[in-house]
Design a protein around this nucleic acid. Structure first.
Lengths: 233, 233
DNA sequence: ATTTTACATGAACATTCGTTCTATGTCAAC
DNA sequence: GTTGACATAGAACGAATGTTCATGTAAAAT
């Protein structure tokens, strides 16, 4: 019947579908006889025959002498199969470490914290961050109050922070001034001996700090997320 | 040696690790003898013994009489294992439909668009949106210019929009006023015959529109994302 | 001290399962 | 028509694999 130089026959496709189905719904690959049953192939040797071809074409990989020893590499459509780890790796679960706002001292999480309640985090796609940031020690803070409105950050916003002690010019950082309890978000600039803290809103005046050592950088803001429902006023 | 009423023994943990390792690196579950080899257990019956316990504790699921017939349900830490489809389902790829800003009329994507360049979208976790929004027809716009600064939305921000024709009070919507080319973001309120457009920044005055029919709602903002690098001034 | 319970071992057994071989059928090219 | 590549079956073999049993050890409970 079917005689084709390229492309997959219906049986090839059917077998790939069975493989995919097992992977997703069963959790492990089918045996040769199970494939035969699903694909209406009576002989194990025929199934074996097609599996060899699929391997030669790069759709699957087989481990000889091992029961169910095969893994799917490509889709029926030819697209590469994403493994669990890759899919999960695309997602970062960033712990919600607390709140930031008037009078609140934030405490970035220290070393070796591994477990936190799953709902106490925000999920962000790796693709939304720079590669460097994505692999850094990130934590999230919920903004409380309107005190950061000049930094274009609203009450209820979530800021994704990267833990760092020093800031570079132009970065938005969380800073605490010596003698103050308050931590706020500002754009940071170090210029000829003093530090300039620039509100994001250009209509507002910058704050000049004469003594750089009184400026404590808590972290750098890498992202701001605002979830909107119904809201104010 | 170890005698514990709860928690997993080292052997339990070791076996779970082997299972996870096979799942990730091999693509199919190990046989009982393979588990024994990896976990330094000489007898197959001992492995079987522990697998039964792990099943009873809800860590794995076994299919009797089936070689490699087991699937991992929970992590060593007890966290539920995410399957590929679930992991992918947790992620939304929202098409970047264009820009919004002064003088720019946005054009939300119409029915039945399924394919767009994968890099022309923003990835957002389902968990970051309400269930209703997550399954709605979403699109993203990049904000251009400072014209929305009164809505706390900065140049370069990405707004996730939900396509809708009507707005409810308190929602931030993209609106176009009759006779204007400009589309802007404002909080929307309909009250006794007129429409009030409220800037997000409380220090700014609301705009009252006498004729509601001249207000065209383009969509509702469900999220604002600001990626920070170095930046302005 | 005795019994119970949890853990461990090795061997034997029964299937399951991958592999291989032979036989047959189809179809296009020579 | 013959040939040969491809496709399909069925059966048989041996290795891989899950299951069961008989036995043993040591800590905990009685």
């Amino acid at each position: 019947m079917a005689r084709r130089k390229q492309g997959l026959s219906d049986r090839h496709k059917k077998i790939l579908e069975v493989l995919e189905d097992y992977q997703v719904n069963v959790g492990y690959p089918p045996s040769i006889r199970e494939i035969g049953k699903e694909a209406d192939i009576s002989s194990t040797s025929v199934v074996n025959y097609y599996l060899d071809q699929l391997e030669k074409e790069g759709y699957i990989e087989r481990d000889r002498k091992v029961s169910r020893g095969m893994r799917l590499l490509r889709d029926v459509t030819g697209r590469l199969i994403e493994s669990v780890e890759e899919a999960v790796d695309n997602m970062l679960l960033i712990p919600l470490a607390g709140r930031i706002g008037a009078g609140i001292v934030i405490q970035p999480p220290e070393s070796g914290f591994d477990i936190f309640p799953p709902d106490e985090g925000v999920e962000v796609a790796r693709s939304m961050l720079s590669e460097k940031d994505a692999s850094a020690n990130l934590y999230a803070l919920e903004v409380e109050g309107d005190s950061m409105i000049d930094a274009m950050v609203d009450d209820g916003d979530i800021v994704i922070m990267k833990h760092t002690q020093e800031a570079r010019n132009g970065e938005m950082v969380a800073i605490r001034l010596e003698g103050s309890d308050e931590t706020t978000l500002k754009y940071f600039y170090r210029e000829n001996g003093h530090v300039r803290l620039q509100p994001a809103n250009p209509t507002m005046e910058p704050i000049i700090i004469k003594d750089p050592s009184s400026v404590h950088v808590q972290g750098k803001v890498v992202m701001v997320i605002r979830q909107m429902g119904a809201s104010p006023i």
